[in-house]
Write a protein that binds this DNA or RNA. Structure first.
Lengths: 262, 262
DNA sequence: CATAAACAAGCAGTAATCTGCATATATGGG
DNA sequence: CCCATATATGCAGATTACTGCTTGTTTATG
């Protein structure tokens, strides 16, 4: 039976890591699916899942496994995380927007709060690729809302793809409000997906001023996909709890830094 | 692609999480509605609800379930009195959507309810110019959401303008779900704004089938801006209360008419 | 009070799971 | 080189979970 000429030896541990990866990537895994994909029997998969649950890496359910944290999309979880500090940051950033400007607002929870913090009578044009931003500004009588269309990326709730790329390429804004994933002194601006990085790069390139809004825990960290160097930022708004030491690299680059009134 | 021909499977536990999510989102859930939406029998739903109540996640009531704590749902569109009849119309229209199709969904509250009534494991591509539709479908694992960008028209909550025009011109859909403003035997399809009429005309022209969804009070009425003749419609879904007399003009045109199970 | 819908309990078929056991595949000592 | 041991895997039978259907009962509503 097991007479495959070259047995591509897959280590058990390697296979288990693969299961965890598939789960995080796909949101769920089923036993038959894994059995076929990894070319082992369903029993082996079940034993793997039992071990992974013991290790706290998956939640075992009848028929397969789900992520440990409830399967609600990542975005909805983040929505409720540190809303207060994000709102304080957003309020500080909103003051930097001048009447009459064309403003790009990134996706991401902090950037969304900036949209919500804008004064209700503001006269402006707001460009965004996030449906939440569009809905948040629907009641603003003097704001013209321009949406970047495309394919919905469900983890970041942003419209992406070539259509978004084309639409963004033909725009020129006064200000861009960037919801930053990670900022690092030497790595620069970075984020967790390639598509996101590409779009952020376009937004930065097509705006005169770039305001980065971020919680303090994102400072001095890095993510896989690099957007560009730090000196493309013109303003940085973060929490009051951020130490001066953390902010000094940005100030030496000529970036205006602001702390939220926490 | 490693796509097997078997239909995408939904884990029981996954389905229960969906129920909780729908409950928090809608403020209430009914057994028939969940049965339709999740594509399982009413008995299974009842068993799910019993288990969820045991776990303290829902409060079981006759006919469905309510949140554990009597919260006021943040449901902005709820002030609309005929939500229930719109939802019934939407449920009937959703049955006309076949797996694998490319579906255009118009803006408007009834069309939005169609999106919300689609079975959760539907495999499809949905094109829309409404941010609410995009958000409603964000949790559908096998639906690709394509957004038509443009300038936000705040009265209809649709993205319009030349950008939307261009994006719609380059699309070809299997079916279009049209939220109709007015239908009249001699005037045809009409609506209240020029921009809306233009976009609806484009959507109709680029879809193989056109399903109009509308409450009965819109039948035999007219609005200022004409979209096109009635015979461009292929299906019409309306309330159970609509008289046969009202529907006969459409049937003689070869339009398939459906009444919601009210 | 009558009717239709919703419910609960039980039954049967299918799929998933669990348990014990036999067979490989190293790994290291004699 | 041979063998004992631990680990990993697959298989077979018993058990459990899930689902839809049927029957009789309860609940809501006009």
């Amino acid at each position: 039976m097991t007479s495959s000429p070259t047995s591509p030896t897959t280590l058990p541990e390697e296979r288990r890591q693969h299961i965890v990866q598939l789960l995080n990537q796909h949101g769920k895994v089923t036993v038959p699916e894994l059995s076929e994909h990894l070319d082992v029997s369903a029993d082996t998969i079940r034993r793997d899942l039992a071990g992974l649950e013991q290790a706290g890496l998956v939640t075992r359910v009848h028929g397969g496994a789900l992520p440990v944290k409830p399967t609600t999309p990542p975005y909805k979880l983040r929505r409720d995380a540190n809303v207060d500090s994000k709102r304080a940051i957003a309020a500080a950033a909103a003051k930097l927007i001048q009447p009459g400007q064309v403003v790009m607002i990134d996706s991401g929870t902090t950037a969304l709060e900036v949209a919500r913090s804008l004064p209700i009578n503001l006269l402006a044009t707001v460009v965004s690729a996030s449906p939440y931003v569009a809905i948040a500004l629907a009641d603003y009588p003097h704001v013209e809302v321009v949406m970047i269309g495309g394919t919905l990326d469900k983890t970041s709730m942003t419209f992406t793809g070539s259509a978004a790329h084309v639409a963004l390429s033909n725009l020129r804004a006064d200000v861009c409000v960037l919801g930053v994933c990670s900022l690092h002194e030497t790595v620069g601006i970075s984020t967790i997906s390639l598509e996101e990085a590409t779009l952020k790069r376009l937004m930065i390139g097509n705006a005169r001023e770039v305001i980065a809004v971020t919680t303090a825990d994102k400072l001095h960290t890095a993510a896989p996909f690099v957007v560009g160097p730090l000196n493309q930022l013109t303003h940085l708004v973060t929490e009051a709890s951020a130490s001066d030491e953390l902010l000094s690299p940005y100030q030496t680059l000529g970036i205006q830094t602001f702390k939220a009134a926490n």
